[in-house]
């Protein structure tokens, strides 16, 4: 019985492996994953430098380059916007678009969730929002790559959010006041050690969820688009082309929405957690 099942399993494995060889989909992962080169086929491949620091591999990768592109775009555009206010307080063009987003982050995210003292966290929230938004959109242009579709990047951003949340809470309530405030009011004394551990874990699950949510959303959309396009090559037929393109286009439009929503969600939740840490009485 046991050997039979194993045989069936081995057979299936062999069959699947053969099919996999025929219909190799590794290029999907190649497109989504980080790399040490920027693939600009048919114009060639840019190889990026390998760097080492104290035994750590700190090579400049594709996602690093795209983060830098996002950074340069943001600095360039926002500097221009800041300058445009000097000539006139009436927004126009890019200023108008940027202003809408800035006001959205300020009035719809920071103000209602943090309340009093929101101004101190506004630069962080704005930077996070614009950085994630730009990275998300950079992944949607041809030859682009989504840095926010990399778990290392999102985990780092979430860790920074975590630090801002904790520092904000400690700065406002004091070190001991903050940790005392984590415990709910009116619980029995014997529950305190357990609740403290639970609440402490809760602090870490929040940024963990932030990191996974952003990473998964940005990666999933790309994989779905690539898989839909890949159907054409796997099935070796033109019949599937209209369907593939139509669905891929639909997912692409959805991705534009997701790019906006995920930037909003990340900022919104960071802001919400900051608000919870700063005003613990609620």
């Amino acid at each position: 019985m046991y050997t039979g099942q194993e045989l069936i399993g081995a057979d299936t494995l062999k069959q699947v492996a053969e099919t996999a060889k025929k219909t190799d989909t590794s290029w999907i992962m190649h497109d989504v994953l980080d790399a040490n080169e920027i693939d600009l086929t048919p114009f060639g491949i840019i190889h990026l430098p390998h760097l080492n620091l104290f035994g750590f591999d700190i090579s400049i990768t594709k996602h690093v380059v795209f983060m830098w592109i996002a950074m340069l775009i943001l600095i360039f555009v926002l500097k221009k916007v800041a300058k445009s206010y000097k000539s006139s307080l009436i927004p126009k063009g890019v200023t108008n678009l940027t202003e809408t987003l800035i006001l959205f982050v300020r009035d719809e995210i920071a103000k209602p969730t943090i309340g009093k003292g929101y101004e101190n966290f506004l630069p962080y929230l704005l930077t996070v929002f614009f950085f994630i938004l730009t990275c998300n959109f950079l992944g949607l242009i041809p030859y682009g790559s989504t840095a926010t579709g990399n778990i290392s990047v999102t985990a780092t951003l979430a860790t920074l959010s975590f630090l801002v949340i904790q520092i904000g809470g400690i700065w406002k309530n004091g070190f001991f006041g903050y940790f005392k405030g984590l415990l709910p009011h009116g619980i029995p004394a014997w529950l305190i050690p357990i609740m403290f551990v639970v609440e402490l874990l809760g602090l870490f699950t929040k940024p963990f969820a932030l990191a996974i949510r952003l990473f998964a959303n940005m990666t999933a959309g790309h994989i779905v688009i690539l898989a839909l396009i890949g159907l054409i090559f796997i099935l070796h037929t033109y019949v599937v082309v209209p369907i593939s393109i139509a669905f891929a286009l639909f997912i692409f439009l959805l991705e534009i929405l997701v790019a906006l929503i995920q930037a909003y969600i990340f900022t919104m939740l960071s802001s919400l957690f900051i608000g919870m840490a700063v005003h613990q009485e609620h």
Binding site: F56, I58, T61, V64, M67, I151
Partner: peptide, 13 residues
């Protein structure tokens, strides 16, 4: 997880 990328993300951000 790529530690180099983490470092670069922190620095960039």
């Amino acid at each position: 997880v790529n530690p180099g990328l983490i470092l670069w993300t922190v620095v960039t951000f």
